[in-house]
Design a protein around this nucleic acid. Sequence first.
DNA 1: AGTTGATGGTCTCTTTTTGAGACTTGCTCT
DNA 2: AGAGCAAGTCTCAAAAAGAGACCATCAACT
Lengths: 134, 134
Amino acid sequence: MNKLTGDVKGRRVAMVCGVPMDVENCPVRDVMDNIGGKWNSLMILSLADGALRFSELRRLIPDISQRMLTQTLRDLQRDGYISRTVFPTQPPSVEYALTDLGRSLLGLLKHFVDWSVANHGAIRSARGVYDAAS
Amino acid sequence: MNKLTGDVKGRRVAMVCGVPMDVENCPVRDVMDNIGGKWNSLMILSLADGALRFSELRRLIPDISQRMLTQTLRDLQRDGYISRTVFPTQPPSVEYALTDLGRSLLGLLKHFVDWSVANHGAIRSARGVYDAAS
DNA sequence: AGTTGATGGTCTCTTTTTGAGACTTGCTCT
DNA sequence: AGAGCAAGTCTCAAAAAGAGACCATCAACT
């Protein structure tokens, strides 16, 4: 059985699968914050088949506000998942594409998509049971 | 090349990896909402080694508020990832454990943990580059 | 017999995040 | 001249998250 807590710099923190779930220094939380955000993973999946422009993404995901689209793209760019290239056309066009890191994450996300499709029914029915009981 | 949009019940929606990213009927969004939440995946990982009680979870993850702990557990229970068992002790104790569905998701999450640890450095450095430039 | 601590929560209040939608600047098309 | 597109920004309202007090019940100390 795994140890569930450990000491990091004197503070007692949760250990999960051998990784400290420390608030400040946790790789998993760093990644989860990105794939976890409401739009982040959807964005990476949307860029799976190639680069897209701002307005193409907006049309592709109609229920995202422009504000969140901008912010999501910035966040993903900051963490190195996507690149942003401005072309000096008139008006300037901006293209977003996955980086190597982004494509690497995409590999994981695809497993998620498969899992989701396979288990969607189970989740829906669990939800139904729970809602009926309460 | 994959088609990026398709029609679902007359509405035009994004298609990603062959799955409609439709707002109302999207398996991926349903799952992402759960693993995506700030605490959800951490909770499932915390239960990886066996059942835990409410207060054990609270101690294990010191930076979660009781309010969010309750809510996260309810959400995960509702979707069938964890079970909640009340023991008639005095005072009553409550045990949370992964269901089969939860353990199945755990399998995926572990790949995430591995990926996170492996790529944490790249993310941190991308972030540093971005922050220095802006 | 009174205080303390544990149990598993709920309630309220404040702060942070998100969403909806108007507005911008420069250029092209009609 | 008027409309529309490019890639956003700005403001304000709504929703979600966090902090922390509070609850009832029981056991163990003092």
